[in-house]
Amino acid sequence: MRFSGMSIAVASVVAAVVAALPGSASASGGERTSGAWVPAPQEAFEMPAGARCEFAVRVEPIVDEVRKLTLATYPDGSPKRELFTGALVDRVTNLETGATSTADASGTSLVVYGTDGSMTWYVTGPVLLGFREDAGTLPKGLWIVDGQFRVEFTPSFDKTITMLHGTTHNVCTDVD
């Protein structure tokens, strides 16, 4: 039987979720699990000119049905693995001209948190990611990344994207 890269990635996320459910063999070594979905609302935010876009920008959710499931925690109670999913549509506004656009960021992500402040996202579907100048694998901007991919964040939030397949689009160009 042949599997596509997409099937393998989905199977990997499902296997990780199942392995981390309460009562599973991998939920050992001090890990605690939760099992309750809770809302995970996104806060609106503004960035000054030059930080992500060449102009000041505001990003605010207009549809936000994102929820999270904590799969495992560290002994101190901080999250070790969480699953995020749900509809998220953001309005992106150029604060200098008033031009607006919407960005669908309704992907599903398994997030694995490192003890050093790093994290890795295993994503299916679109997410909105901001990149600073020279701080990752994409140029400065607000990017919709869609498909199946992994995002590795350093403790200082530099980002490395490894695409299995998908597309990228800089939303700054939509409101320029």
Score class of each variant (00 low, 15 high):
residue 4 S to E: 12
residue 9 A to Y: 01
residue 12 S to T: 15
residue 14 V to Y: 10
residue 16 A to Q: 06
residue 19 A to K: 00
residue 22 P to Q: 12
residue 22 P to W: 08
residue 22 P to G: 15
residue 29 G to W: 10
residue 30 G to C: 11
residue 39 P to F: 04
residue 40 A to T: 06
residue 42 Q to R: 15
residue 42 Q to T: 14
residue 43 E to N: 15
residue 48 P to K: 14
residue 51 A to I: 00
residue 51 A to Q: 12
residue 55 F to L: 10
residue 55 F to N: 04
residue 55 F to C: 07
residue 63 V to N: 07
residue 66 V to Q: 00
residue 69 L to C: 06
residue 71 L to F: 07
residue 73 T to M: 10
residue 74 Y to T: 05
residue 74 Y to Q: 04
residue 76 D to S: 06
residue 77 G to K: 09
residue 81 R to D: 04
residue 82 E to K: 05
residue 96 E to S: 14
residue 99 A to N: 12
residue 99 A to W: 08
residue 101 S to N: 11
residue 102 T to W: 09
residue 102 T to I: 13
residue 104 D to L: 10
residue 104 D to Q: 10
residue 107 G to Y: 00
residue 116 D to V: 01
residue 116 D to F: 00
residue 117 G to Q: 04
residue 119 M to Y: 05
residue 119 M to Q: 11
residue 123 V to S: 03
residue 124 T to M: 11
residue 124 T to G: 12
residue 134 D to V: 07
residue 135 A to P: 02
residue 137 T to I: 09
residue 137 T to F: 08
residue 138 L to C: 09
residue 138 L to M: 08
residue 139 P to W: 04
residue 141 G to L: 01
residue 142 L to F: 07
residue 144 I to K: 04
residue 146 D to G: 05
residue 152 E to A: 15
residue 153 F to E: 03
residue 154 T to Y: 03
residue 154 T to V: 09
residue 154 T to I: 12
residue 154 T to L: 02
residue 155 P to E: 11
residue 156 S to I: 04
residue 162 T to G: 13
residue 164 L to P: 01
residue 166 G to E: 05
residue 168 T to N: 10
residue 169 H to C: 04
residue 174 D to L: 14
